[in-house]
């Protein structure tokens, strides 16, 4: 079995376990390449129709191309979309230009997600994080409990053996499920090519620059690149050594910001 098929099977197994386990399950969909691949895997796991909602955490500072891509995909794939926005914080004027970036992320992402979980009562959330994205993500389990404050007790995680995942947790916890944990950035692009998945145009180079990782417009900068097709992106990743998140401001502000965000429950 080739590597992509192996990865796909493993992810589908995990998605089906999560669906079996949780009455209220949702997939977080940032509209980027990884979570779009995740949603596609969900479609495959359930033979076409994703039987749970996909949640887009909308800070309102995303690229216009992301909103249009989102709406196009919702129609094309027949998705049940929930848009999670922290309206209260937005009304207070919270944004990337006021105060620290950490505060902005906390309010518009973490708190927006908390409100969404409280409103819908989700017990399980599928997230498209990958271990090779960032050293801290390398610590993740496939099924990872978070408390109401979204705290991640990474020092004392439950054991996870073979395909037996932590499935029940106390009431104040929910489980984060990571079906793509084992995938590499390269695998995602190879999969995009194999499955012929739609790609947000922001990933393709324009005027010598492209976005390698998508977030908020205000905190994302493009990397130098001439890769304007999926094939060229694959070639670039194979030969290049720039860290994927090199263009993300939140990683630079403080080497430990990412860790703080993780512990706080940011995806």
């Amino acid at each position: 079995m080739d590597r992509l098929t192996e990865l796909e099977n493993r992810s589908i197994y995990i998605i089906r376990e999560a669906y079996h386990q949780f009455g209220r399950l949702a997939a977080l969909w940032s509209v980027g390449k990884d979570s779009t691949a995740l949603v596609w895997l969900c479609k495959k796991a359930f033979f076409g129709d994703v039987p749970f909602p996909v949640v887009h955490i909308d800070t309102s500072y995303k690229f216009p191309e992301m909103y249009s891509f989102r709406d196009e995909m919702v129609a094309r794939w027949g998705l049940d979309l929930i848009v999670a926005r922290n309206e209260e914080a937005l009304a207070r004027g919270v944004g990337p230009h006021e105060g620290s970036k950490l505060n902005c992320c906390t309010e518009l992402k973490t708190n927006a997600l908390k409100q969404c979980i409280a409103e819908y009562g989700f017990e399980g959330l599928l997230l498209a994080i990958r271990r090779d994205e960032h050293g801290i993500r390398a610590k993740e389990r496939y099924f990872s409990p978070r408390d109401r404050q979204f705290r991640w007790n990474y020092e004392d995680q439950p054991p996870e053996l073979w395909d037996q995942y932590t499935s029940e947790v106390d009431e104040e916890f929910h489980l984060r499920v990571h079906p793509l944990l084992e995938w590499r950035e390269l695998d995602v692009w190879l999969y995009v090519r194999r499955e012929n998945l739609p790609v947000n145009p922001l990933y393709f180079a324009r005027d010598g620059k492209r976005y390698r990782s998508l977030g908020c417009k205000t905190c994302c900068s493009p990397v130098q690149s001439n890769a304007s097709t999926v094939d060229e992106i694959i070639e670039e990743i194979r030969t290049g050594r720039t860290a994927e998140r090199a263009g993300r401001a939140q990683d630079k502000e403080d080497a430990y910001t990412m860790q703080k965000l993780r512990a706080l429950g940011y995806m």
């Binding site: 960032h134 050293g135 801290i136 390398a138 610590k139 990474y154 995680q157 084992e182 430990y256 860790q259």
Partner: peptide, 16 residues
């Protein structure tokens, strides 16, 4: 990668 590990100089969890 985790701060505690750097400070205590030991590997706490499995990383990959």
């Amino acid at each position: 990668h985790l701060r505690e590990e750097r400070q205590r100089g030991m590997t706490i969890d499995t990383a990959q």
